[in-house]
Amino acid sequence: MSRKFVCLPGYLQSGKVFAEKSSGIRKILTKKYNCQLDYIDPPILIPNKEELPFTLSEDENEANTKFSGLVDLNVNRCWWSHKSTPCRYEHFDEALSYVVDYIKENGPYDGIIGFSQGAAMAAIVANNINKLLPSHENFKVAVIISGFAFVEPKNPEDDREKLNTEITDVLTYTENVNLVPGYEKYFQAPTDFDTSIILIYGSNDFAVPNVRSRHLESLYALAVLNTFVHDGGHLVPNKKQFLNPVVEQIESSLESKPNL
């Protein structure tokens, strides 16, 4: 009987693109370990380029062409839209319900895998699956790639992006941020939490600076936790040399908690 994973793409990705970007781990899990990986599309559509948190081009026509390309590829998608003032995550509840409904209809799942924005959502779902879907047992393993928690500066005068990019020490970072009010519960694993957490992040990730991933790591103090750091940027590592110990840990997590 194959083990099943639900896989959550990052910002501006579809399930198809995430499957391609994670081909290394996908092929090992499916071919060597007979796992089934279900890649789902983020449900929130980004309607226009103005909703993006960055500029596609200084030239208006070129920017429109690039955004049309994103639409054609079906990657104008996200799990939420972050707004800074005040700090909020638009469409988050809708996206969370979408994931839970998908798991309910297609599960149960042994594990969950997420990248970037999808990694944050994967952590949230893994932490709270018993509350969100009481009929579903805890995942055996959650693979969080370039993940992060929802934080805001403790000092309202501090700039969130500067904290993310200028602070490299995780203790200093933790002293300067709070979990965003209303979302704290999503990043607090229960005391009886038995899901194995595998965190993967890049030492040269500038999209999600690794201090954010290390801060998320600190929130799993009581969990079974394994961390793997690669020397790349904002990506899913695909080299076998890096992935082999990761997949061995995934397999160990699956085998140590057999279904009854």
Rank of each mutant, 00 (worst) to 15 (best):
S2W: 12
R3H: 12
R3F: 13
K4E: 04
K4N: 09
F5G: 01
F5L: 05
V6D: 00
C7Q: 07
P9Q: 06
G10L: 09
L12N: 06
Q13G: 01
K16I: 00
F18Y: 11
K21V: 04
K27H: 08
L29W: 13
L29K: 11
Y33W: 13
N34A: 09
D38G: 03
Y39A: 04
Y39G: 00
Y39M: 09
I40E: 01
I40M: 06
P43L: 04
P47A: 05
N48R: 10
L52K: 03
L52R: 03
P53H: 08
F54Y: 15
T55W: 08
D59T: 06
D59G: 01
N61I: 08
N61P: 02
N61K: 14
E62G: 02
N64C: 04
T65Y: 10
T65R: 10
K66C: 02
F67W: 08
G69K: 10
L70A: 01
D72C: 05
D72R: 13
L73Y: 03
N74H: 12
N76A: 09
N76I: 06
R77F: 04
W80C: 00
S81P: 00
P86I: 07
C87T: 13
R88Y: 06
Y89I: 06
Y89E: 01
E94K: 11
Y98S: 02
V100D: 08
D101K: 14
D101T: 14
I103V: 13
I103N: 00
K104R: 14
I112M: 07
Q117Y: 08
G118Y: 09
A122C: 03
A122Y: 10
V125P: 10
N130L: 09
K131E: 10
K131H: 12
K131L: 05
N138V: 07
K140E: 03
K140I: 05
A142I: 08
I144Q: 02
I145N: 14
F148K: 03
A149C: 13
F150A: 03
N155S: 10
N155C: 14
N155G: 04
E157I: 15
K162P: 02
L163A: 09
T165M: 12
E166P: 01
I167V: 15
I167M: 05
T168Y: 14
T168E: 15
V170E: 01
Y173L: 06
T174N: 12
E175S: 15
N176G: 01
V177S: 01
V177W: 11
L179M: 13
P181H: 07
P181C: 04
G182E: 03
A189Y: 13
D192A: 09
D194I: 13
D194V: 14
S196P: 03
I197R: 05
Y201C: 02
G202F: 11
S203Y: 09
S203A: 14
F206Q: 10
A207V: 14
V208I: 14
P209A: 07
V211M: 08
R212V: 00
R212F: 00
S213Q: 09
S213L: 07
L216M: 14
L216Y: 04
L216C: 05
S218K: 15
L219M: 07
V224D: 14
D231C: 11
G233P: 01
G233H: 11
H234Y: 06
L235Q: 05
K239E: 14
Q241C: 03
Q241W: 02
F242D: 01
P245K: 12
E248H: 11
E251V: 15
E251Y: 12
S253Y: 05
S253H: 10
K257V: 03
K257I: 06
P258A: 05
